[in-house]
Design a protein around this nucleic acid. Structure first.
Length: 285
DNA sequence: CCAACCCCCTGAACGC
DNA sequence: TGCGTTCAGGGGGTTG
């Protein structure tokens, strides 16, 4: 009979658009604040340096801004240092009044001079924080291995130069952060759907028209996703910083077995790079 | 240089 | 009804 809608397909998995959204919401709230305390409830969340050194260097520093690079967030500090973090699968970052209910799985609480707190929660404990002091080079987080940013846009020629010699499936290339930064499984599937390219196609087999369509689909998908995620800081806080809202515009991701919104063909699912990949076998060749 | 595989971690889904 | 098993998934690391 009619069961309740099961399997709500997890809506976390922050990728570039979700991380950009976090930055846009939190940056105004954090910029100008001074860090007054660090409480690493689960010390493992701090990858570098030690939790004690992290706390010592962070306390007293003023936050001067926030940046995104790929799926990394960087909190700039007035002393020339920075705090860097990666949400990975289920991480969520939010700014809350000190007396605001604490999310389950909260591993780190950074108190600020206006009485608010920057909090990090992460059910699967994959997310990590790093802190680098002025002049210190980050060689541990992996940020230096990232490929170029896909926004505002990469041209067809640039994409072809980046990926065109790869024999791996194009989907695997899109997910490889060293080739292009920020694209994950969800938006990777959507990008290939928009471009009308099968995720299984070897990158080296794409022709000029396809590189052009891909160069248009990447920023179209990412920018649209960022737009869909726009919300007020209040909405963001109420959602625990991880409620990225339903993304009903998703055409193929999470829709295996359902009809393609464009042609009605049943969406198929395959595994590439160990990740489920949904696509329309008719629209994507 | 690259592919294959493991690991981290937990809740949801599944099987009996 | 309940318990044990399987699995996803970003990205770093190791092995072959």
């Amino acid at each position: 009979m009619m069961c309740e809608p099961v399997n709500e397909e997890e809506r976390d998995m922050p990728e570039l658009p979700e991380v950009e959204n976090v930055k846009r919401i939190l940056s105004p709230q954090l910029t100008g604040r001074r860090i007054t305390g660090v409480n690493a409830i689960w010390p493992g969340v701090i990858a570098y340096p030690s939790p004690e050194e992290f706390s010592r260097a962070a306390v007293g520093a003023q936050i001067t801004g926030m940046e995104r690079r790929g799926k990394f967030l960087t909190i700039r500090l007035g002393d020339g240092g920075c705090i860097r973090l990666h949400l990975r699968m289920t991480g969520a970052l939010l700014a809350a009044p000190a007396d605001y209910p604490v999310e389950k799985y909260t591993h780190l609480r950074i108190s600020l001079d206006d009485g608010s707190e920057l909090r990090f929660s992460d059910m699967r404990r994959f997310g990590r924080f790093w802190l680098f002091r002025a002049g210190e080079t980050d060689t541990v987080s992996g940020i230096e291995r990232l490929g170029p940013e896909p926004l505002p846009a990469l041209t067809a020629d640039e994409l072809c130069a980046l990926l065109g010699s790869r024999k791996k499936p194009i989907k695997e290339c899109l997910l490889d952060q060293a080739m292009i930064a920020g694209i994950g499984n969800i938006h990777g599937d959507e990008i290939l759907y928009l471009a009308g390219i099968s995720p299984k196609r070897p990158a080296s087999s794409l022709d000029g028209k396809e590189w052009l369509r891909l160069s248009e689909a990447i920023p179209a998908e990412l920018a649209a996703a960022i737009g869909h995620l726009a919300m007020t800081p209040e909405e963001y806080l109420a959602g625990g910083g991880k409620e990225y809202r339903d993304e009903p515009y998703l055409a193929v991701y999470g829709h295996a077995g359902e009809p393609c919104p464009r042609c009605g063909t049943v969406i198929e699912k395959t595994v590439l790079a160990g990740r489920g990949s949904c696509y329309c076998p008719n629209c994507q060749r």
